[in-house]
Design a protein around this nucleic acid. Structure first.
Lengths: 265, 265
DNA sequence: GAGTGGTCTAGACCACTAT
DNA sequence: TAGTGGTCTAGACCACTCC
């Protein structure tokens, strides 16, 4: 098969990383050096690195260099385990690399070496049309807004913009719950249990502002995950917009299939 | 905020599409014309189009031109509806744009104007290590392999490479079940019901071969969905590797949260 | 044959990081 | 100050589609 020059270079670099010639965390040769080595222009080398960056093999840090990604850092978001646990006999997916293994710890959990940076101070804002609709409240109602950047080992992993009904969560403006998961706090404080969630996933290229915050290049894809959480009483208590660096995440969904064996006519 | 020139051009094009100045299906100005209009080099215009292509706003057809994507063509893969149906009172996600609304119709279903192209004739192949592990059979066991390209309105949407135990599905080598869903056939023929599934999603840039088959550019992301399906008897009956053009898909997952309100210590 | 997107070149300047 | 990645330029040739 005919390969472009950039694709050829990408394959060579890929092989070097896979074979351990370039170990995890290593700084690769600079783009200028690589263009000399491969007899290609720098733009072509950049396209090659774009490709393997999109695959999550390397991370680019402006001003510093390009580094081989630590594969173990890919976060496994594991959903529907409750279902699996209820149905014995199905093999469990590999546990290594797992950062979160319960909904409550979740994508928002703090793993080792990870931390959360608030991009804005949590505040009360008027719900726009979309937020109001999802939280089932009138437009303009005050809601608690949080805007966070999650980092692992200092590397940005995801952006979370989330909205909560202020009557339940408003006191978080003045109260610090530390590392306690939000929904654990909700149960202890208001005796409300989260019971149901809907997640809508889309993958696309990052926008300029997302790229700046997540420190990724212009060709790196992100996964946009819009999450809605309801309590047992069917009250929406969270509407979150999560932007995750695609190369750093794996999403696992596991669920039972309805006993309905024919498509509806 | 400081925007690059490419990002600026992307925003302008985005606005033209959103405001209907460039309606769905319209052919946009050529890259050369746009570079003249914006006073930018063609490479910069290409990067701008890369961006909005990654967002799914336009589709590039080599030799023909760049066309405004028909947004309604984004396929909504809707999972976990069984759960929602069992829990009354939760609002249903919007139905418009929905192509598949049941697992059995699923990502493999044929919507209007869609068709499946077999890239290889279905055949019996020896299971490699990965396939054998997932189907819980010895390495080298013969399995039925299917390799398909799914198109909607002539536009490639996804690639599906799937493996099935040959004792159950082997006769499909010589039997054509037409449009009947595979698992409906399985139930009618062998009285086996699919009961459980696991899906692992990753988003990344497409490889060269994927790009060729799916006719997308080198910066367009894809969603890789590895799916495993079990019967009620906990027997794996499918191991599938699905490559979907990210810009053409939305994945919706909806499920109940276990009644466990504390993270494990 | 004219027009299109796909790829590549050989430079250039910038902002940032490290020393 | 030297090195890095980020961006941009003004060309070039190719394969493909359409007329």
């Amino acid at each position: 098969m005919e390969l472009g020059k950039a694709e050829e270079i990408a394959q060579t670099l890929r092989a070097r990383i896979m074979q351990g010639i370039l170990p995890e965390g290593t700084k690769t040769a600079s783009e200028r050096d690589l263009s000399e080595e491969f007899g290609a222009s720098r733009m072509t080398v950049r396209r090659a690195i774009d490709i393997i960056e999109g695959e999550g093999l390397v991370v680019r840090l402006p001003g510093r260099g390009t580094f081989v990604a630590r594969l173990r850092d890919r976060v496994v978001v594991d959903r529907g385990r409750e279902v699996r646990e209820a149905v014995e006999g199905y093999p469990m997916p590999s546990r290594e690399q797992r950062m979160s293994d319960s909904f409550l710890k979740d994508i928002e959990c703090l793993g080792p070496n990870s931390r959360v940076q608030f991009l804005e101070q949590p505040s009360l804002v008027a719900a726009d049309k979309e937020t109001a609709q999802h939280l089932q409240i009138p437009i303009g109602t005050l809601v608690l807004k949080r805007y966070q950047l999650h980092l692992v080992d200092g590397l940005p992993h995801c952006l979370i913009e989330s909205y909560y009904p202020s009557d339940l969560f408003g006191e978080l403006l003045t109260t610090d719950i530390g590392d306690e998961p939000l929904f654990v706090w909700l149960h202890e404080r208001h005796h409300l249990s989260v019971a149901h969630t809907q997640e809508v996933l889309i993958a696309r290229l990052a926008t300029q502002s997302e790229r700046r915050l997540l420190r990724i290049s212009s060709k790196a894809p992100v996964v946009v995950l819009n999450r809605k959480v309801w309590t047992e009483e069917k009250r929406p208590v969270e509407w979150a917009h999560i932007i995750a660096v695609a190369a750093l995440y794996t999403f696992t969904y596991e669920y039972d299939i309805a006993k309905r064996h024919r498509p509806t006519p």
